[in-house]
Design a protein around this nucleic acid. Structure first.
Length: 671
RNA sequence: GGCGGGGUAGCUCAGUGGUCAGUAGCGAACGGCUCAUAAUCGUUAGGUCGUGGGUUCGAAUCCCACCCCCGCUACCA
């Protein structure tokens, strides 16, 4: 193995269509923690993050904001970097897909794969959704030519064009073999199974270019086309190493970890990207790990109150405001809280009360107060000078050593919460230790020798805890070290300091004790006005191709009013709405949402399919009057032709049918 | 419907055949202590381990069926 090979870890590159959100903050913080951890252990580590700026959606967002595209992406890329800095994220490199170094490598990859026949030109016909950046086959698109994604439903563009395909279909077998031979490659385990099943279902060649409309990376020797966003995006991991010309690119590649959210895992990071690398004859990343999302309590038991999920900086600011802690400490608190609350492999409910509550219990009460009471007693009983212990408390020394081991193991398995729990077991033990030793009695009884042992042990334990926590809370660890009189900083700290007992020198002077994490006094009561009335699931990861949000930066959390275009009365009158009587209704086989209705529209009998099975029983519909679109082109679904469309109100995804206020003749025109 | 994940103490979860299900965290109750940020420590909370079968000397843990929840996906024209 290359002895100069760095520990290379990446986040996905984030879309610059809005500000960073807490999901991106989670991914990025996790990477930062791992990078810091490995650095602390003496291995060179290299942490890459960046922004994805080549997408058509970016152009859209810029236009909407009425800002030149380049300026738009510059601003947002700057905002990402600023956000990460404020959250103490020490990335080593920040790649932007508009940078020449990225563009050149994308084109080089394209050339190489084309030369070996893995990229070929073909004809693509289909519907394209700009918002989702996805093509749909004819069979997926209805007569209205709206995006089939139920949460998008924007108008599609018809595209019939020559474009390039990546021969993904050729890599299924090799991928499977590789995945099965390398259990570390895809994690967690159950995700690996999903990938294998996805591959078994048959990989299709992927269309990877589109017509050049002035934004995007031109196809080499064919500048009328630009490279499609996914193909482009994943290459950033390689581009940042300097491949293929930089002499030391192999000191970075292959990546040790690609950490991504689960939504971009199966199709892109676990299949497309590895297949591309195979085509380039490059080694695959050692591990690709998918984590889950934050979700809110929507759909859970009624009465559970939660708000929306705020932006990370705002959340840190709120913690700072409520507690009185400086922003840097609050930012570290947020880092801790995210990692401690997250069940990393799965989805986790975000609850404001839970975050703030844990701030108090874990950080203020357990850790902060432990440090405070220890330092306070040193000040009170030893004039602020670290006493000389006559012996070591073997049990505590042993526990500290075990804690470090557990922490190390857990981080190696991406179990951030378990790593932190281990540290808190040490902290909890120390609070108990103080109760057992009752140093205030030792002081009163003049047992200076035992008192020295007790307090020194406490300070040492705080030192070890601070060291273990340094990757997670770099600023807070610094504050803890300062509080016990040490000059240690996150830049100089080494892992061995966590596994070596007794590094704090007796005679050291400690500063006057101060609460590091001041308690939040009214955390229990949710702050009503702060609560953003919100809905649904708040996604949280990385580069969400499926993101529904508009590309505007502000924290506007309201519903996306899909600003309908104004139409004329003539246009409206093209739509023939008529009252119909439902004469029969039955479920459609193999469809959970569809009902097949037989309706009479005047003299005419029609079959209409409606997606209302979740709200209505067939029998309760018979005899009802409904409103249908009578002149809609027929469309087959589940093998049944629907001759019209039933009108229904969309209430959070549930369909409520529209009826005349009193009974009217069947066939009556509605307008 | 297909594929995947899950249903364990009030809440969040550990726990993949065997001392009576967890030393778990939060919340709650009671008690102790006073160095400390109304902090901390102790005790308590007696939960049909979703339901019904089966395998086994023995299952929360294996098998089958069913119910419910979540994710991806197909179907709401």
């Amino acid at each position: 193995m290359n002895p100069d090979k760095a520990y290379y870890i990446t986040t996905p590159i984030y879309y610059v269509n809005g500000r960073p959100h807490i999901g991106a903050a989670l991914t990025t913080t996790c990477c930062d923690v791992l990078a810091r951890f490995h650095r602390m252990r003496g291995r060179r580590s290299w942490f890459l993050t960046g922004t994805d700026e080549q997408a058509p959606k970016v152009v859209e967002a810029a236009q909407k904001a009425q800002i030149p595209v380049q300026q738009f992406v510059d601003t947002l890329a700057g905002e990402f970097q600023a956000t990460w800095r404020r959250l103490h994220i020490a990335f080593d490199d920040f790649i932007r897909t508009t940078e020449p170094r990225h563009v050149e490598v994308v084109q080089e990859v394209f050339r190489r794969l084309r030369d070996r026949g893995d990229i070929y030109k073909g004809l693509y016909q289909g519907w394209y959704c700009v918002a989702d950046e996805t093509y749909f086959r004819d069979s997926d698109v209805g007569e209205d030519h709206l995006c089939p994604n139920p949460e998008c439903r924007r108008p599609l563009e018809r595209k019939s064009e020559e474009c390039y395909f990546f021969r993904l279909s050729a890599y299924g077998d090799r991928l499977r073999q590789y995945i099965e031979a390398n259990p570390e490659f895809l994690q967690p385990d159950f995700r690996r199974n999903e990938v294998i099943r996805f591959i078994e279902s048959g990989l299709r060649d992927m269309n990877i270019t589109r017509v050049n409309d002035g934004w995007g990376i031109p196809v080499p020797d064919d500048p009328d086309n630009v490279i499609y966003v996914w193909f482009d995006a994943v290459i950033n991991y390689l581009a940042a190493t300097g491949w293929p010309h930089a002499p030391d690119w192999e000191n970075l590649w292959p990546a040790d970890v690609h950490l991504v959210g689960k939504e971009i895992y199966v199709r892109f990071h676990a299949t497309l990207w590895p297949a591309m690398l195979m085509g380039l004859d490059l080694p695959l990343p050692r591990t690709v790990y998918a984590h889950g999302f934050w979700v809110d309590a929507e759909g859970k038991k009624a009465g559970k109150r939660t708000g929306g999920i705020p932006h990370p900086i705002e959340l840190a600011q709120e913690i700072s405001d409520l507690s009185g802690a400086p922003f840097e400490m609050a930012a570290d608190a947020l880092r801790y809280l995210m990692l401690r609350e997250m069940v990393f492999h799965g989805d986790t409910e975000y609850a404001r009360e839970s975050f703030l509550g844990r701030y108090n219990t874990d950080l203020a009460n357990d850790l902060g107060n432990l440090c405070n009471r220890a330092v306070n007693m040193v000040t009170r009983y030893f004039d602020g000078v670290v006493p000389t212990p006559t012996r070591a408390e073997e049990e505590i020394v042993q526990l500290a050593r075990e804690t470090a081991q557990e922490y190390e193991t857990a981080l190696g398995e991406f179990r951030f919460n378990a790593a932190l729990e281990a540290v808190w077991r040490l902290i909890g033990r120390m609070n108990r230790y103080i109760e057992e030793k009752t140093p205030w009695k030792q002081a009163k009884e003049g047992d200076r020798e035992e008192l020295a042992v007790t307090l020194y042990t406490c300070l040492e334990a705080v030192r070890v805890a601070a060291t273990l926590l340094a990757p997670v809370m770099p600023a807070a660890s610094g504050a803890l070290w300062r509080q016990i009189g040490l000059p240690t900083t996150v830049d100089t700290v080494r892992w061995e300091e966590a596994t070596t007992w007794g590094l704090l020198s007796p005679g050291t002077t400690v500063p006057a004790p101060q609460p590091l994490f001041p308690r939040i006094l009214d955390a229990v009561k949710p702050d009503e006005k702060k609560r953003v009335s919100e809905s649904k699931k708040v996604e949280t990861t990385d580069q969400e191709k499926s993101r529904k949000e508009e590309g505007t930066p502000p924290a506007a959390t309201g519903e996306q009013s899909a600003e309908a275009p104004v139409i004329t009365i003539d246009e409206f009158m093209k739509v023939q709405l008529r009252v119909a009587n439902v004469t029969a209704a039955e479920p459609v086989p193999n469809a959970s949402k569809l009902l097949k209705l037989t309706v009479e529209v005047g003299e005419e009998t029609r079959t209409i399919l409606a997606g209302i099975a979740e709200m209505y029983q067939p029998e309760e519909l018979v005899g009802k009057q409904v409103v249908v679109v009578a002149n809609l082109a027929p469309r087959k679904m589940r093998g049944v032709e629907s001759q019209g469309m039933l009108l229904a109100a969309d209430v959070e995804g549930q369909a409520i049918i529209v009826q005349p206020e009193t009974r009217v003749p069947s066939g009556s025109r509605v307008r």
